[in-house]
Structure formats: C-alpha cells, structure tokens
Amino acid sequence: MIIFRYLLKEVAKTQLAVFFVLMTIFISQKFVRVLGDASEGSIPGQLVMTFIALKIPDLAGFILPLSLFLGVLLAYGRIYADSEMTVLHACGVSEWYVVRVTLVLAFITAIFTGIFTLYLAPLASEYQYKVKEELAADSGLSALVSGRFQQTGNQDAVVFIHDKDRDTNSFNKVFVAQLPKGDNVDASIINSSLVYAKNGRVFEDDTGSQQLVLGDGIRYHRDIETKEFQSVAFNKYYIQIKDQEIEHQHRKLSAISTPELYNNMPAELESAYRATIQWRIAFPLACIILIFIAVPLSVVNPRQGKFAKMLPALMLFLGYLLLLTSMRSAIEKNAIPSIVGLWPIHISALFIGMMLLMKERSSGRIIKAKLPSFKRKSNKKMTEGKES
C-alpha cells in the first residue's frame, strides 16, 4: 500500500504541474488573439475574459491526456534515474504492478476528460455562438469604445466619443457623422451632416430599438438647394438606429451536445456525426491506452537521465494524434465507413504499448534470472577468500 501511494502521488504531482504549465501556455495564446479582436473593436472589452473562459473546456479535454502521458514519463523516468525502481523490482514490484497503479490515475483522468469533451466543451461552444449572435444583433452603440471612430449597426453613421461612463451608459463630447445613402462617395461626404454634442446616452424604447440621444450640441449640414452650410444648435437630438435581427449562425458539430448528436442523426450527415462522437470519446480512451506506452518508455538507464526517451515518446504521441485526426477527416468525407471509426488507431496504439511492455518484462526476467547465479558466484568467491 505504501508503494501504491508513493507511485500514485509522484505521477499525480507531476501530471498536475505539467497540466497547469501547458494550460497557461495555451490560454496565453488564446488571450493574445481575443485581446487583438477586442482592440479592433470586434468584441467589447468586458467580454474578453468570457471568451477566454469558454476556450478552457476544449483545451482541458486535449491537455489532460497529454499531461498524464508526460507526467508518467517524467515521474517514472526520475524514479528509474535515481535507481529507486531497481530497488522496487528487487523487492518484487513488477512492471504489471506499476501499470495497474498508473491505470488508477488514468481512469480518474479519463472521467474528467470525458466530462470536458462530451459535455462541457459542446456547451461552451454553443454559448460562444449565442454571445456572438447577440453581438451581431447589437446596433453597436452599447459596444462603443472611447477614442475610436466606429460605425453604427445600420452603416449610416460614424460615431466618435471622447469619454464613456459604463455604469450609466452615457457619453461625453460626442461626434457623429451621418452619411446619406448613395453610390457616389464624394457626394456622400459633401452632403453628410456633422453633429457635435457635449453629452449623449443610449436610449432603448419598448420595442427594443435603440436611439442615440445627444444633448447640448450643434448640427452642421449642407442645404441641397442653396448648397450652403448651416448650423443648428439643439438641446436634444435623436438619432434612430435600427437594430439588426439576430441571425442564427450555422452551428459547427462541435457546438452540438453529445446526446443530440446521437439521437438526431440525419442520414446525409451520419458519417460526420459519428466521426464527431468518436472524436469526443477518443480522448478519454487515449488516457488509458497511453499508459501502456508511457510506462515502458519511462524505463531509462541511470546514466542516461530521465529525459532519455522523451523524444521517441513524444513522436509516438504526435503520431497517434495525427492518425486520429486523419482518420476522422476520412470518415467525414466517407472515404472510410463510419462503422469502422477510429477503433483501428486505438487498437494499433494499444498493441504497440503491449509489445513495449512485454519487451520490458522479458528483459526484466533475464536480469532476474542472472541475478541468483551472480550472487552464488560472488558468495563462492567470498567463501574461498575466507578459507584461504
């Protein structure tokens, strides 16, 4: 029981460290992309953390099997490099026992991975689509950013605000350029009306349409008949902005829940639906299958160091992932029957792991077989030395 807890603790501790490091790296990359979209005005600044949080389930479902694989390699590699595993083998701890101990952690990781890939990731993807639809339906006034020229939802006006109060949704020093509709760009610029107001706010009526209400300002416009510019001072000026209707975007299969994929499977998209379901199941299965590859590859010579087999192990992991991706693409294109699925890749990876494990076991038997004869010879020499 002590050995069981020791091995489990070492692998779990290393896995958590690798998981948090990889999550930090991938989330940082997503953060840079989302922050770039926010700086361009594509999304409001207050929704940056929301979009980042919606990426976490998808990333966690992919990183959990990888963190377990690297955790086993690093933890057992360190134990082998320090000759601790040699002592454990001498005490009767076999490779199969190490595999069984590691499979306990693998099953726990597979459960959490399944929760992410089968439930949380589709839910987050669907919510992300809804947020994008609401942003597309918004007229753009509530998403105005101070110090930047932005076009309204109906594409008929350009608004610039000097300062914005988020609590009251009011503006200070507002500039609005209302462009008349027309194909002639020069005529549109000349005939445009320019409005400057000291303050403004967004008003939403009972019908849901939004208006920009400006106060204490001046409107400059060009009279079409006299072709003279006129200025009109006002206390209040209303600019009607027509809200866009919510356009439901075409959902990718990643945004559809797993029960809906399984129960509502159209005949023309049956292959794509089955490929998506098997892709979501592949990551929990990979947590278990990769153990049979990681444990034998973690066996290193103390002189080599714990990173001796890290490169071939990573190559096997990447090959496994790329083959799964290629097989999924082939199923979606009907190049491979959907009934075959991703199972050939899983079975092949499991077979490679079993072969590696049997190889380590056979080499262990040879060492153990030579160990008693070596002890007898050494004891015999020591006895002869004492007699002489």
Score class of each variant (00 low, 15 high):
residue 296 P to C: 10
residue 220 Y to N: 09
residue 231 S to R: 10
residue 188 S to F: 13
residue 186 D to E: 12
residue 251 R to Q: 08
residue 239 I to G: 01
residue 291 I to F: 11
residue 204 E to C: 00
residue 191 N to V: 07
residue 290 L to H: 12
residue 206 D to G: 00
residue 288 I to Y: 06
residue 269 L to R: 15
residue 295 V to I: 03
residue 191 N to G: 09
residue 283 F to D: 13
residue 214 L to F: 02
residue 255 A to E: 04
residue 195 V to C: 11
residue 300 V to I: 08
residue 239 I to K: 02
residue 274 R to I: 03
residue 269 L to N: 15
residue 238 Y to M: 02
residue 188 S to Y: 14
residue 300 V to N: 02
residue 260 E to Y: 05
residue 291 I to H: 07
residue 273 Y to H: 15
residue 232 V to T: 02
residue 273 Y to Q: 14
residue 210 Q to D: 08
residue 286 A to H: 06
residue 199 N to Y: 15
residue 217 G to T: 05
residue 205 D to E: 01
residue 230 Q to H: 11
residue 248 H to D: 13
residue 262 Y to D: 06
residue 239 I to W: 01
residue 216 D to Q: 05
residue 230 Q to T: 09
residue 254 S to P: 13
residue 287 C to N: 04
residue 237 Y to D: 03
residue 213 V to N: 02
residue 280 R to P: 03
residue 266 P to K: 15
residue 287 C to Y: 02
residue 198 K to R: 14
residue 257 S to Q: 08
residue 287 C to I: 05
residue 197 A to T: 07
residue 283 F to C: 13
residue 216 D to C: 06
residue 272 A to Y: 13
residue 193 S to P: 04
residue 262 Y to C: 08
residue 256 I to S: 00
residue 210 Q to Y: 08
residue 245 E to K: 12
residue 269 L to D: 15
residue 225 E to P: 03
residue 226 T to G: 12
residue 243 D to G: 04
residue 270 E to N: 14
residue 247 E to T: 13
residue 197 A to C: 10
residue 258 T to K: 04
residue 275 A to L: 08
residue 219 R to K: 11
residue 237 Y to P: 01
residue 194 L to W: 11
residue 218 I to S: 06
residue 265 M to F: 09
residue 212 L to G: 02
residue 289 I to Y: 02
residue 300 V to M: 03
residue 276 T to C: 03
residue 247 E to A: 15
residue 233 A to C: 09
residue 213 V to Q: 01
residue 265 M to A: 11
residue 197 A to G: 11
residue 298 S to E: 14
residue 260 E to P: 13
residue 276 T to Q: 07
residue 213 V to R: 01
residue 212 L to E: 01
residue 291 I to S: 06
residue 201 R to N: 08
residue 256 I to Q: 01
residue 283 F to I: 14
residue 244 Q to K: 08
residue 195 V to A: 08
residue 284 P to T: 03
residue 260 E to R: 07
residue 223 D to P: 02
residue 267 A to K: 09
residue 218 I to L: 10
residue 232 V to F: 03
residue 281 I to T: 07
residue 217 G to V: 04
residue 187 A to V: 06
residue 266 P to Y: 14
residue 194 L to K: 12
residue 255 A to Y: 05
residue 213 V to A: 02
residue 253 L to N: 14
residue 221 H to Q: 10
residue 219 R to G: 04
residue 273 Y to D: 12
residue 240 Q to L: 07
residue 298 S to N: 15
residue 283 F to K: 12
residue 187 A to N: 06
residue 198 K to A: 13
residue 219 R to C: 05
residue 237 Y to W: 06
residue 239 I to Q: 01
residue 223 D to L: 03
residue 236 K to T: 07
residue 290 L to M: 14
residue 194 L to F: 10
residue 233 A to S: 10
residue 298 S to A: 15
residue 250 H to W: 10
residue 258 T to C: 04
residue 235 N to K: 09
residue 200 G to K: 12
residue 195 V to E: 09
residue 291 I to T: 08
residue 282 A to P: 07
residue 298 S to G: 12
residue 211 Q to G: 05
residue 208 G to E: 00
residue 275 A to W: 10
residue 299 V to M: 07
residue 262 Y to P: 06
residue 189 I to A: 05
residue 275 A to F: 12
residue 215 G to V: 11
residue 208 G to Q: 00
residue 259 P to K: 07
residue 224 I to V: 11
residue 206 D to I: 00
residue 206 D to A: 00
residue 206 D to T: 00
residue 255 A to H: 06
residue 252 K to H: 02
